[in-house]
Structures are given as structure tokens and as C-alpha cells.
């Protein structure tokens, strides 16, 4: 079964280039979009396996689009493909539900590999993203407020794995060094993301309830 992909980017030249690269390598590019609002609308209609998401899209950002798409389409995974530095917006996108991140300077082979892995359900981590996620867990642990049980925490093994990812080791190298299976490494990495995303959804829901924003969002559509 071919993987269906949707490309979201505000830059037509880039959008078409990436779509062509993917089509040449056997992916089915089912849609493209140039802004976040139409990305959400089109994604709901075509339900692609993978959405390649740029983050700088103007008014409604790629982070918002990621949150809406992953929230409503459980079968669709979002892979962030961004030229922006590996900073807060990337972290926000991942917390919003993106299952991975790739820089735009990545080669066509890296892109194809990342899309395949995303479609298969793996998390696509760069060293930079691992550094951001590690930092985010530590920031939450140090922040005052919530009691310790409510904050997501990394297990010792997960911390160890994330640190090695951040130091540039491949999943296979990490498996060798820690004497665990390749699959286990992938599971640890995925688990760090899932906990972060779950916490983010809980926080957003709590915020919505506290501010009376939870009433019938469907009715307006």
C-alpha cells in the first residue's frame, strides 16, 4: 500500500519541489496547501497518512494546524519540515502532536526515510529535537505549581536514550551501547513524545474549561 502524503508550505517553489521528490520515490501526494486553515480543511477531507508541515505559515501557524489535525484525525501523522532553527516553535509543534521533525536542509533520501518511518508510526528525532525535549522535561520539573504527580517525567532509561539521540547516535548505535533491541530504543523515544503530548492536551483542556471555551466547538462548523 502506498503512503499518502500532504505537503503544507507557504512557499510554492518549495511545496512543488518536495511534492515532486516524494512522487518520484513512490509516495502518493494527495494534496498540498499553502496556509494553515486550508491545510486543516483539506486534511479532514483527504485524510492523508502523513502531513509534511512547515511551521511559518502566517496568521494561523503550523503549530495550530498540527494540533487541529492530530486532534481530529487519529490515523494521520504530522512530520514537521522546517527551515527555522530548532527552537521553541519546533518544540511547540511536537507538543501539539507532531511525531517528528526534519530540517529543510535534509537530503531527499533523509526526507524519504523520515516520511516512511513516520507513516510506520515511529518518531523521527533529530539530535536538536532531542535536546529540546530533554530541556522541556527539565523545565517542567523545575517549574513551580503543579504537584509532582501531574508533571510528566522521564524514566532513567528514557533520559539516557534521549541524551544519546541528542549526541548524534543512531538508533542502532544506541541499541548496541545500551544492549537493548532496536525496537526498544524506538519505543523509548516514542514514549517521551507521547507523554509530552498527552500532558499538553490535558493542559489545553483544563485551560479551555477554566476559560469557558469548551462549549460545542462542533456547532460552529
Amino acid at each position: 500500500m502506498t503512503v499518502s502524503v500532504m505537503v503544507v508550505d507557504d512557499h510554492p517553489m518549495w511545496r512543488e519541489g518536495v511534492a515532486r521528490d516524494l512522487a518520484e520515490r513512490g509516495f502518493e501526494v494527495v494534496a498540498t496547501a499553502g496556509d494553515a486553515a486550508s491545510a486543516v480543511r483539506i486534511a479532514k477531507a483527504v485524510r492523508p497518512d502523513v502531513v509534511l508541515m512547515d511551521l511559518n505559515l502566517g496568521e494561523l501557524s503550523g503549530v495550530d494546524a498540527t494540533l487541529l489535525i492530530t486532534g481530529e484525525l487519529p490515523g494521520t501523522r504530522v512530520l514537521v519540515l522546517s527551515a527555522s532553527g530548532e527552537h521553541d516553535d519546533v518544540l511547540q509543534a511536537v507538543k501539539a502532536g507532531a511525531s517528528g521533525y526534519l530540517v529543510k536542509s535534509a537530503s531527499a533520501e533523509e526526507l524519504v526515510d523520515a516520511v516512511s518511518r513516520t507513516a510506520a508510526g515511529d518518531a523521527v528525532f533529530t539530535a536538536g529535537l532531542a535536546g529540546l525535549v530533554l530541556g522541556e522535561y527539565r523545565r517542567m520539573a523545575a517549574a513551580p505549581g503543579d504537584s509532582a504527580e501531574e508533571k510528566p517525567q522521564l524514566t532513567e532509561r528514557e533520559t539516557e536514550v534521549l541524551r544519546l539521540v541528542a549526541k548524534g547516535l543512531t538508533a542502532r548505535q544506541i541499541a548496541n551501547r545500551l544492549v537493548i533491541s532496536h525496537r526498544t530504543v524506538e519505543n523509548h523515544v516514542q514514549s517521551t513524545l507521547r507523554k509530552l503530548q498527552l500532558h499538553n492536551r490535558v493542559e489545553l483542556a483544563r485551560y479551555a474549561i477554566e476559560h469557558g471555551l469548551d462549549s460545542e466547538p462542533e456547532a460552529q462548523r
Binding site: W14, G17, S84, S105
Partner: peptide, 20 residues
């Protein structure tokens, strides 16, 4: 950063990719 991203970085990334 946003405006550079929208223009120069996009083009450079594309040049690099196609060139290779």
C-alpha cells in the same frame, strides 16, 4: 527570522537540494 525564512532560507535550501 520569519521574513528571512520566507525568502532567503527557502531558496538556499532549494538550491542545495536541487544542486546535489
Amino acid at each position: 527570522a520569519r521574513s528571512i525564512h520566507d525568502s532567503v532560507l527557502q531558496v538556499l535550501a532549494r538550491v542545495r537540494k536541487r544542486g546535489l
